[in-house]
Nucleic acid binder design. Structure first.
Length: 935
RNA sequence: GCUCGAGUGGUGGAAUUGGUAGACACGUUGGACUUAAAAUCCAAUGAGCAGUAAUGUUCGUGCGGGUUCAAGUCCCGCCUCGAGUACCA
């Protein structure tokens, strides 16, 4: 019988479904939680790059199941958010419909690959029963604050309590920074609006009126991690700054814990490094400069207080909070400058890094140590939201300050002894002694740092300070397709909807398109106001009813639903809790999490923040959710391009372009000859894309240019897994994807290479068959065959543990090659091999397993145990090298001792002929490894 | 600019962590089977030199040094590519 993969795969996929083979529950077995990042169901469908991580995690899950673990391996859909909505807008359909359609398409494609997902636990972030809990967590954040004394989140009630009992006493420093001061009776006297305003500065989910990244094309606000190189990550659109009232999550309070938590999780170093950079911790001091003839002072943050005597100016950001107090002298120029800066888009600002701009404020500050007057400048190279929004300009020690001073002819005092700073600043922390620095003269960095911090604290003009780059996360999206924010406004004061009334369902609207002016599409809904009495959404028309209030119109960002979804899989249909204690206690946390590193500073950071927040409030019992994380690499597609003479419809073969100005045009790979991979298929060029085009050939051929790029539908270089399944089968696809290379590496896809894996499976299959009948021997397996088997058991299980799945496939190939040449048809050996391969090629293994007469599925068979005794060798082929170069090999018994080996080697003819009567200087023998003779 | 990561045959990639570089595949070439093709099987395949040949020999893991009996692997200095980040004081 032939290996009829189409029939086999269909048969077993149905078997698994009807027998609920992959459904799991509580068990006395040890648990293991293996998770993939769930997909966005976009309209493009899967290409062969998508399942890469899913296949790896599936192999790992199945392997662990054979080894006695109760493996939770669920899957679901991240179905809210921009991609789903964009697709809906493009196709002119309601996102609800397109999302459902896309999910069906994804599911069909996933099912063909034979994953062991427990689909009974499927979740969708856009399902009201799911987002009920996303909203619930938001309310929890809204009603919490970060307590600096206990260093954790606590209920806002305890803060209110403290205000009621002792006024601002406990939180004096924070409150006075915000400009508040009150005793307990004053607090009692504040009206609700004032109270809300004060509390808003503490809530972990808070409403603010600050600058945001506004993307007009997408019609929404974006978080920092959704912007790449100054343009939107999705679509690459223009992003500018805009003042908008919006919700934020106070993730910055968790900076230190997010940073230190990285130490205890086994995540890839590059990814941890990215999170560290994003959090951006730096130690320094904050320092006060008095403003001349004014009560005001300017606080700057610096990491180099040792360079204090090099200060020749101060610079403040255009958005600096007290700017109006300073600008009395030069008001007009400053206003002009500020408006100029605000017109610049994010991208202009980035591309403009080199150009220096700024304006003198007209005011001076007083140097706290030498009393000199230093001018205060305004410039956009200082960022308002970092540090204090003001810096001290030390042109000798900082290149930006240097450039600024040069441009505006500000003094550049040299504070470094014998260092030339005429062309550039000296910004190293080593290799200098200070100069012109009064009591710091002659000191190096470490010495002066200690002294100056001491002096600063003694004079009470500043203090040591730790700064983080991490900003609070913008949470509002002016979008339709997202979780409604469960907030309504009573007399302009935001109130959360009672959690009992969740979910707050997304209303039907006629028009869900984003608006250019930034109003949310939810405003289009006729029924979108909150009735406090009825506890439900009611018509906007009733907005003036006594107990009816407007609801928040913005929705949540895509990452809200994905920040906690891994807990929902543990208990997906619980209506009382987002996860039950029993479920959480049993499944605990993720043992291995597979996904792309592109989520490093988005999903993977936000979810750690959610985790810590829910841990603080004792809803979770771990403060990190994934012990180990694996970043699978991308699969690269082989994109194709043709050259076209600029301004014409004449196309030139690859090597004919030298004399012309040409445009490089991306073409669909369907036009490229599948055999040779460069020849443009002239038979297909009649397609409408190339109507009226002229093709100039070279040697009767038209050659394209091929380049490797990330596989993506927009690049016309995708390979559909369905086609591979049709042609070679899912098991071949699974094994080939693993065979391509290490899981974490990016690697190019080449369909031609698949034949090797496919013929391996056929070869394996043929070991069971003789003349189209199963033909196995029940005799004792040969010593040789057992050695091959156990060698493979050892190698494959070690490699799966290391997730080195590409080398597993090689080992299988070696094994089958060896057994084929032995003509091995031994039942014991082949049965064991079926279990070994079943994580990789599950349909294949199930089929042969059942053909051998087994009635139960192979998935719960015990994994074969490696036994050392079959591998014990009595001899070793030693490489004999001279001065480190191998010249010949020598087969020796492993029983020989050092002297005996030396004797054997030296008496060997080849040794004699190479030595040619010279006496070796030294002979190195590592028993069981190598022999090296030094001459 | 800064921070990571990576450079091994024509291609994807192996190499027990310092011990026979190129496993396993793809591709290519030659052969067998076939009227033919597909499929399958067998053989060769890092580069060069010498030899009819078995074989011998030199070079060879981005480049230049170093440590070592021994370096793809460790150390120092560069180059190239990829990713992230970007006026973060």
């Amino acid at each position: 019988m032939n290996y009829n993969f189409l029939e086999i795969e269909k048969k077993w996929q149905e078997f698994w479904k009807t027998n609920r083979t992959y459904q799991v529950g509580f068990s006395s077995k040890p648990k293991l939680y293996v998770l993939d990042m769930f997909p966005y169901p976009s309209g493009a469908g899967l290409h062969v790059g998508h399942p890469l991580g899913y296949i790896a995690s599936d192999i790992y899950s199945r392997y662990k199941r054979h080894n006695g673990f109760n493996v939770l391996h669920p899957q679901g859909y991240d179905s809210f958010g921009l991609p789903a909505e964009q697709y809906a807008i493009k196709t002119g359909q309601h996102p609800k419909k397109t999302t459902a359609d896309n999910i069906n398409m994804y599911r069909n494609q996933l099912d063909r690959i034979g994953f062991s997902f427990d689909w009974s636990r499927e979740i969708r972030t856009s399902d009201p029963n799911y987002y009920k809990w996303t909203q619930w967590i938001f309310i929890l954040m809204f009603n919490s604050f970060y307590c600096p004394f206990d260093n954790k989140a606590k209920s806002i009630k305890s803060l209110i309590n403290s205000f009621e009992k002792e006024g601002d006493k406990k939180f004096k420093s924070q409150l006075s920074d915000l400009g508040y001061s009150f005793n307990h009776s004053e607090w009692d006297g504040f009206n609700p609006k004032k109270k809300s305003e004060i509390l808003m500065n503490f809530r972990l989910a808070y409403l603010t009126d600050g600058e945001v990244n506004w993307c007009e094309e997408l019609g929404t606000v974006l978080a920092n991690d959704e912007i790449i190189n100054g343009v939107s990550e999705r679509g690459g659109y223009h992003v500018s700054k805009r003042k908008v009232k919006h919700w934020c999550l106070r993730i910055s309070e968790y900076s230190e814990r997010l940073l230190s938590g990285l130490e205890k999780i086994d995540w890839p170093d590059p990814l941890k490094e990215m999170q560290r950079n994003w959090i951006g911790k730096s130690k320094g001091v904050s320092l006060n400069f008095k403003v001349e003839n004014s009560k005001n002072s300017i606080e700057v943050f610096t990491t180099r207080p040792d360079t204090i005597f090099g200060v020749s100016f101060l610079t403040i950001a255009p958005e600096y909070k007290d700017i109006s107090d300073l600008s009395s002298q030069n008001k007009l120029a400053i206003t002009e400058y500020i408006s100029e800066v605000s017109k610049k888009s994010e991208r202009d600002r980035l591309s403009d890094v080199k150009s220096v701009s700024g304006v003198f404020s007209g005011s001076y500050a007083i140097h706290p140590f030498n009393g000199k007057k230093v001018p205060i400048w305004v410039s956009d190279y200082v960022i308002a939201s970092y540090g204090t929004g003001a810096v001290m300009g030390v042109p000798a020690g900082d290149q930006r300050d240097f450039d600024f001073a040069k441009k505006f002819q500000i003094d550049i005092p040299n504070i470094f002894k014998d260092i030339d700073i005429s062309n550039a600043a000296f910004s190293e922390k080593t290799g200098f002694k200070l100069n012109n620095s009064e009591f710091l003269d002659g000191k190096d960095y470490d010495e002066s740092l200690e002294i100056i911090i001491n002096e600063i604290e003694k004079k009470n003009i500043g203090k040591s300070k730790v700064q983080y780059k991490l900003r609070d996360a913008t949470f509002s999206r002016q979008r339709y397709w997202g979780e409604p924010i469960p907030i309504y406004y009573k007399d302009g004061i935001p109130q959360n909807i009672d959690p009992i009334d969740l979910p707050l369902k997304l209303p039907e609207v006629d028009n869900f398109l984003p608006t250019k002016n930034g109003d949310s599409p939810l405003g289009n809904s006729k029924s979108w106001a909150w009735s406090e009495k009825d506890k439900k959404v009611t018509s906007n028309d009733n907005i003036n009813n006594v107990d009816t209030f407007p609801i928040e119109l913005n929705t949540m960002p895509g990452w809200a639903g994905s920040s906690w979804y891994f807990y929902r899989y543990m208990d997906p249909s619980n209506n009382e809790n987002f996860v039950s204690n029993d479920s959480q206690n049993y499944w605990s946390d993720i043992d291995v999490y597979f996904g792309g590193s592109e989520h490093a500073t988005g999903h993977l950071l936000y979810s750690r923040f959610y985790q810590k927040f829910l841990y603080d409030l004792k809803f979770l019992n771990k403060d990190e959710y994934a012990k180990k994380l694996v970043n699978q690499g991308m699969i690269l597609g082989n994109s194709a391009f043709v050259y076209r003479k600029s301004g014409t419809s004449e196309y030139l073969s690859k090597n004919l372009i030298s004399d012309y100005k040409v445009d490089k045009i991306r073409i669909d790979i369907k036009y490229v000859n599948a055999e040779d991979q460069v020849n443009f298929d002239l038979l297909k060029k009649e397609d409408r894309d190339f109507k009226n085009s002229k093709f100039i050939l070279e040697n009767d051929k038209f050659l394209c240019v091929r380049e490797q790029e990330k596989m993506s539908k927009s690049k016309f270089n995708v390979v559909n897994p369905d086609e591979i399944c049709d042609q070679y089968g899912a098991d071949t696809l699974r094994m080939y994807e693993m065979f391509l290379g290490p899981i974490e590496q990016s690697k190019p896809w080449d369909t031609r290479g698949i034949s090797g894996v496919h013929s391996f499976l056929k070869k394996f299959w043929n070991l069971f068959y003789n003349d189209s009948k199963i033909n196995l021997s029940d005799e004792q397996p040969s010593k040789e065959a057992l050695k091959t088997l156990h060698k493979t058991i050892k190698k494959v299980s070690e490699d799966i543990e290391k997730l080195s799945l590409n080398t597993c496939i090689s080992s299988f190939m070696i094994c089958i090659n060896e057994l084929s040449s032995m003509k091995c048809n031994n039942r014991f050996v082949l049965e064991n091999l079926l279990i070994l391969i079943s994580p990789f090629a599950p349909h294949f293994a199930e089929e042969l397993w059942s053909q051998l007469g087994n009635t139960k599925s192979i998935v719960d068979e015990k994994y074969p145990e490696f036994e050392e005794e079959y591998l014990v060798e009595s001899e070793k082929v030693y490489p004999v090298s001279f001065n480190g170069k191998t010249r010949f090999t020598l087969n020796l018994s492993l029983d020989l001792n050092h002297q005996e080996i030396e004797k054997e080697v030296l008496s060997h003819e080849k040794t004699k002929s190479i030595l040619d009567n010279t006496i070796p200087k030294k002979i190195i023998i590592v028993p069981g490894k190598i022999i090296n003779i030094v001459i």
